[in-house]
Amino acid sequence: MSILVRRSNLIVPAVQERMIRWSWQRDADAVTIDLQDGTPAAEISRIRKTLRQSVALAGKAGAQVFVRVNAEYVYADSAAAAGPGLAGIVLPGAECADHVADASAILDDLERTHGIAPNSLEITPSIETGAGVWHVRETITATPRVKQVVIDEAALAASLGITQSADHDPLVYARGRLCIEATAAGVQPIAVADPMGTQTGQVSRDEMIQIATDSRNLGFKGMVCGHPSWIDAVNEAYTPAESLVDYYTQVREVFAQALAAGTAAAPFAGRMIDVPVDEWAKDVLAMSAACAARDAEKQAARQATDVWLDAHPWDQ
């Protein structure tokens, strides 16, 4: 089974057309155009008209493009986005199987009418309420369209009546439940890159690598990035380090030699290499290869497109 590599997912408000125009240049594995948060009601129709172009633009360097729809306008928002280059929708506030099944029926319809391969559009439920956390199993198993599920921590805290602070982490249970239930269902759990809701755009690269590494060590498979400066750090933290890849490459060689010599345990670098260690090594090397393949794919897409420009709106 191939490994889905979607480490970083840059989320950009749909109303920020300038940012969307530049979003493809930031090396994110995915870009999500957010129609829900920050879109003034008066702007929504205008935004829908150009949404297909925005999707195409955001994806031109190989990023998979998602649209975060309004929970109340799943049909209108999805229909406005449906077309070449759309990978799927993010469904805010999902908290039961029916929410996801209803959205799936809408996508069935759009796939038929737009000539998109059946069941190819993904649904990423966004968990934003206590009920969403509690009912996460039925929510993510409602349709095979669900490949990832994201925990929107700031929204969840607001829904629980919590004001987030750095002193006490209120979402240990929610995060843990999401990681366990998603992994059990074969769905990737996705975190957000400002776990306490208190980070600014000025987080240092080292800090962001630490934040991303900690979330990976809870079982998450990627992060939603509210700011493009975080993408690089997130990609790095979610890609097996070169030293690790070297180590496990040698582990596999040592173990293969041991097997050839008729034993299934061999000492290497102060550690006994046996079947479980070899299995772990396979996992790491497979993930490394998948990341490399994804990076090559993005590289190829980038080379086929315009030159890089120097100034970015985020940098100003």
Binding site: V15, D37, G38, P40, D152, A154, A158, G197, H227
Partner: peptide, 19 residues
């Protein structure tokens, strides 16, 4: 023209505003 804005070194998003 809502944009992501910073107040007291904190990103102000709709959810932070809800909190």
């Amino acid at each position: 023209t809502f944009t992501v804005l910073c107040v007291d070194d904190r990103v102000l998003t709709p959810d932070i505003a809800r909190q």
